[in-house]
Amino acid sequence: MGESLALDVERISKEALRTMAAGPAAGASGLDRERVVSVLNDVVATEVVGWLRYTRHAITARRIDRPEVSELFDLRAEQAMRHATAVAERITRLGGRPAFDPDTLAQRAHTDYSVADDPAIRQMLEQNVQASEIAVAAYREITRWLGDRDGDSRRLMESLVADELQYGRALGALLTG
């Protein structure tokens, strides 16, 4: 798990840096709104792909009679959709268009939708811990990039980081408990 995590974090870091590479453009907030919208649309994709993975894992956990795990995955799926909606609303307030195109969601997401045909609970928990760690790394990078130039988007990203950290701790407790 550790080796693939390093590769995934490297990929998301490179993608985030590539998207934000041009730096701030002149404007009222000091950021290029189109670039902010693009970065936030990648967050929407990450959350929607997460919703799909968490929903699938919740259903699988119910099938193998692990209600405490399925409940956590259900809660996280609901949270991921709330995150996607909140970020999409922020994009709209910035004058952009939220990108929910199913054909591009997986390519734009920081995490992936990888589920085994018949995963074990431990494997599902590990996949979601890894996805949470990747999201935290990507979202922290975005938060730093936004800085004080777009306080509303930064605060939104900070709240997503806090939720991801809380979720990661809950998953970790199930893994060690």
Rank of each mutant, 00 (worst) to 15 (best):
A6R: 11
E78L: 08
D112V: 10
D74E: 14
R108M: 13
Y167N: 10
F100G: 11
D148S: 06
W51F: 13
L125S: 03
V136E: 01
R140A: 11
S4N: 11
V115Q: 06
A26W: 10
V39A: 09
S4G: 07
R35A: 03
V136N: 00
A170K: 08
A109K: 00
A106P: 09
A131Q: 05
V43N: 01
A45P: 07
G168T: 10
D101C: 07
A16K: 06
R82V: 11
R108T: 02
R93C: 14
P24V: 08
I91C: 01
P119S: 03
G177E: 04
Y54T: 00
S132T: 09
L72N: 04
L174I: 02
A170I: 05
L52M: 14
L156V: 03
D163L: 06
Q79A: 04
Q127F: 03
I142R: 00
L17P: 01
D101F: 03
D101T: 05
L75G: 11
D101Y: 07
V43F: 06
V161C: 04
K14F: 15
T176W: 10
L146V: 15
S114H: 12
I142W: 02
D101I: 06
V48N: 00
L75T: 15
D148Y: 07
R82Y: 09
F100E: 02
A135I: 03
E126Q: 14
I134H: 00
L75R: 15
V129F: 02
L174C: 01
I121M: 04
V136M: 01
E34I: 03
A16P: 00
L160F: 07
P98E: 07
L31P: 09
R18N: 07
L105H: 01
L105F: 05
R82M: 02
Q166W: 14
R53Q: 14
